[in-house]
Simulated scan of single mutants.
Amino acid sequence: MAFGGIPQDDEGGWVKFIVFEDEAKNLDKFLSSHNPSDPSWNKKNAPWVTVSNPYAKTRGESDLFRAFQLWEDLKRSTLNVTAERVKEIAKETNLTVGKWMIFRRRSMIDETWKTIAEATVAGKLGCSSKVATAYQSDTGSKNKKADMHLICVYTDDYSDKEEVMRVERELRSLGVADVLNYKPDIYTHFDIYAKNPYKIKVSLYTTKSVGSMAS
């Protein structure tokens, strides 16, 4: 379901705040009624809440089906599976988005998410951001405790290091003090995680800082 902007159909239970520039004033109402810590998300089967940057450049359509075709072809070929060849698939199919990942305990998630969401809609961060709800946190995490939530802050092109690091600096200015890792979204689609058989480094960038919002 969407709130603000043009209504869109549910996608896997996602709740979206899709906004044009003159509708950002609705964000406070949206956030106050969609706190990710709310246990009622389990009844709604809604794993993510997401907001968009109304000032971001419009991206073309991604072709996930074609990406999987190319991925299977690559794995069957005699070529080595490398980060550079995965990036070629990402470029060809417009699956170039990547994300900074922030983890928060449930007691802190609403405050941190509000800060990130407001900055996203204000155009200070990347193209969009999302947060795992209590439903996703309780049922979807293999390596984190049940009360941990994930926030993803997206940029359009993970090969654009200048933009990726600009968003990182903005996160630091907002008080995010964690060790931050940045991962291409296509790695998630292709199940490329730590200790993958291709020896691809999952996190393109890892940064450290000191501030006031650490978990």
Rank of each mutant, 00 (worst) to 15 (best):
Y193Q: 13
N94F: 06
K124Y: 03
C127A: 07
K195T: 03
R172W: 04
L64W: 05
A56R: 11
L31I: 15
G5M: 00
F190I: 09
E72L: 11
F3P: 00
K75L: 09
C152A: 13
N196C: 08
S77K: 05
T58G: 03
L150N: 04
P197R: 12
K144M: 14
L95D: 08
L174N: 11
G123N: 06
K57V: 12
K91Y: 04
T58N: 04
L125Y: 03
E21K: 12
F68C: 03
Q69N: 11
N53M: 09
V176L: 13
K130V: 03
G12P: 07
N94Q: 11
I186N: 04
V210Y: 09
W113Q: 14
I200M: 02
S209K: 10
S203N: 15
H149I: 13
M101V: 12
W113V: 12
E163T: 15
M108H: 13
E168G: 01
K144Q: 13
A90P: 10
L204H: 03
I89C: 14
D147H: 15
K208T: 13
E88C: 01
S141A: 14
H34W: 09
S107F: 11
W14D: 14
V86A: 06
W100I: 04
A134M: 06
S209V: 07
K124S: 10
V97G: 03
S107V: 09
T78Y: 01
P36V: 11
V81Q: 03
F17C: 15
G123K: 01
I200R: 02
